[in-house]
Design a binder for these strands. Structure first.
Lengths: 230, 230
DNA sequence: TGTACATCAGTGAACGCGCGTTCACTGATGTAC
DNA sequence: TGTACATCAGTGAACGCGCGTTCACTGATGTAC
C-alpha cells in the first residue's frame, strides 16, 4: 500500500509533467496540509523571480541571498546549488534583463509604416521596460560584477544591436541625415537618459506624470529632427 | 613653563588661524613624532572627502562609516558628532555633488558667442563631472534617502535650473524651434544618457575612448538640429 | 595676564544584527537491471 | 513490474565578519572673570 506521502509525490510528478507546467506543489500542500516538499522543483527560476521582486521592493542594498531563500521557504544553503555565489545571481538577473530589454524593443516592429515609426516603437519599449523594472534597469547599467561573467556583456551588446538594427533600416530607406553611429549615439543617449530621469522622477513635466509612451512622443520629433532628413 | 604639548597646540592653533588654512597637524606629528591630536579640526569636511574617495574606489557597497573613520584615523563613533547617521552623510555627499554639477555647468558660460555655444559648454561640463565622479554621479541620481533631507531636492532642481536658464537664454535670442520645456527634455535626456553610457563604458565609439568634450561634440549638432532653428 | 569652568569633539569598548558561505547530512529522483 | 543504487537538491547548524549605532568617558577649547 502507498503512503499518503508517496501518493502526493506521484500526484506532483504527474502535474509537473503534464501540459500545465505550473508547479502544483503549493496547491497540494495547501489542500492536504501535508509535509512540505523536499525538492522545490524549479528553484533556479523561483530564485531569480523572487530576487527581482526583492530588488524592486528594497533596492540593491536590501537584496540578500538569505532573504530570497527565506521568501521561498528554503534554507540559506539552497541557492548555492544553483548559483556559485551572490554575484552569479545578480549577473543572471542582469543578463535576463538585457534579453528582456532587447525583446521589448523589438516586440512591436511588425506593421510599422517606416523607419521613423520603428524607431519610435523601439524607444517606447525601452522606456516601458525601465519604468516597469527600475531597480533592475539600474542594476543592468550601474553594477559591475567582480569577475566577468560569460553572456552578460553579450546580452548588453545585443540590446544595443537591436537599436542599431532599427537605425540601419532607416539608413537603407534613405531616411537618415547622419551616420548610423552618430544617430545611434543621440537616439540611445536620449532614450537612456529619459529612462533614468523618468524612474528617478526628475522629469517634472505635468501632473499626473505622463506614461512612457507620452514621454517618448514628446522627444521623438526632436530626436528625429536631429538625425532624420527633413 | 609650557610643556611641549602646549607648545604644539599653540603652534597648531596659530597655523589653522593663519592665511593658509591647511591643517598642519599631520606635519607637526611627523616632525615631532608627538602624540596624535585629539581634535581633528576639520573632521566634517574630511569625512566627506574620504567618503567620496572611498565611494569612487569601492562603489556604494564598499562605503561604510567605519571605513571612512578608519581612513582618517578616527574611532567609529566620531562621525556621529557630525552626521546623524550614514544616510545623512550620503545625503550630504549627494547635495554637494549637485552643487558642484551646477557650478561646473555654469563655469564656462562667459565669453560664449551665442546660446548654442553656451548650451554646448554646459553639456561638456555635465559630462566632465560625470566622468570625474562616476560613482557620486550614480549616487546622486540613483539613491533615495529613507527620510527626506532638506536641501537635497533643491540642489538637484537647481542643477536642472542651470540648464533651463541656458535654454531660456536661447529662446530670448530667438534660437529655439521648440518650447523651452521640450528642448530641455531632449537636451537633458541626451546629455544625461550619454553621461551614464560613458561612465558605464557602453559607448563603443573609437579606440581609445574619446573624452567628454569629444563625445558631447559628436552629439551637439544633432541635438541642436532637434531643438534649434536652422 | 592667569585661572576656573562649561562646552564640545573624539575615545574605546560594547551591543546585536544580518550577511555570505561552508559542510556533513538526508530525503527524493530516476535509472539499470 | 519491482528493486537496488548512484546522483542530486535541499537541510540545518555553524563560522567569522564587518557593519551601524550607543554610551559613559576624557582631553581640548574657548570664554568669563
Amino acid at each position: 500500500m502507498y503512503s499518503l506521502y508517496t501518493l502526493m509525490y506521484t500526484a506532483f510528478t504527474f502535474n509537473v509533467n503534464s501540459v500545465y507546467n505550473e508547479p502544483m506543489i503549493k496547491l497540494q500542500s495547501n489542500m492536504l496540509c501535508a509535509k512540505k516538499a523536499y525538492h522545490h522543483g524549479e528553484l533556479r527560476e523561483s530564485l531569480l523571480e523572487a530576487a527581482e521582486a526583492l530588488l524592486e521592493k528594497d533596492g540593491p542594498a536590501g537584496l540578500s541571498l538569505r532573504k530570497v531563500g527565506r521568501q521561498l521557504g528554503v534554507t540559506p544553503g539552497a541557492p548555492y546549488r544553483h548559483f556559485e555565489d551572490k554575484d552569479a545571481l545578480l549577473a543572471a538577473l542582469a543578463t535576463e534583463g538585457f534579453q528582456k530589454l532587447r525583446a521589448v524593443m523589438l516586440a512591436d516592429q511588425e506593421g510599422a509604416p517606416d523607419g521613423k515609426e520603428r524607431l519610435r516603437r523601439a524607444g517606447v519599449g525601452y522606456l516601458q521596460f525601465a519604468s516597469a523594472h527600475p531597480e533592475l534597469f539600474r542594476l543592468m547599467f550601474g553594477w559591475m560584477p567582480a569577475r566577468d561573467v560569460p553572456g552578460l556583456c553579450e546580452a548588453g551588446d545585443a540590446a544595443f544591436a537591436a537599436l542599431q538594427g532599427v537605425l540601419e533600416g532607416c539608413e537603407e530607406e534613405g531616411l537618415l541625415s547622419r551616420s548610423v553611429s552618430e544617430a545611434g549615439l543621440l537616439a540611445w543617449s536620449a532614450v537612456h537618459g529619459a529612462a533614468f530621469l523618468s524612474i528617478d522622477d526628475r522629469l517634472k513635466l505635468e501632473e499626473p506624470a505622463p506614461d512612457s509612451e507620452c514621454i517618448l512622443n514628446m522627444m521623438h520629433d526632436s530626436i528625429w529632427s536631429g538625425i532624420g532628413k527633413r
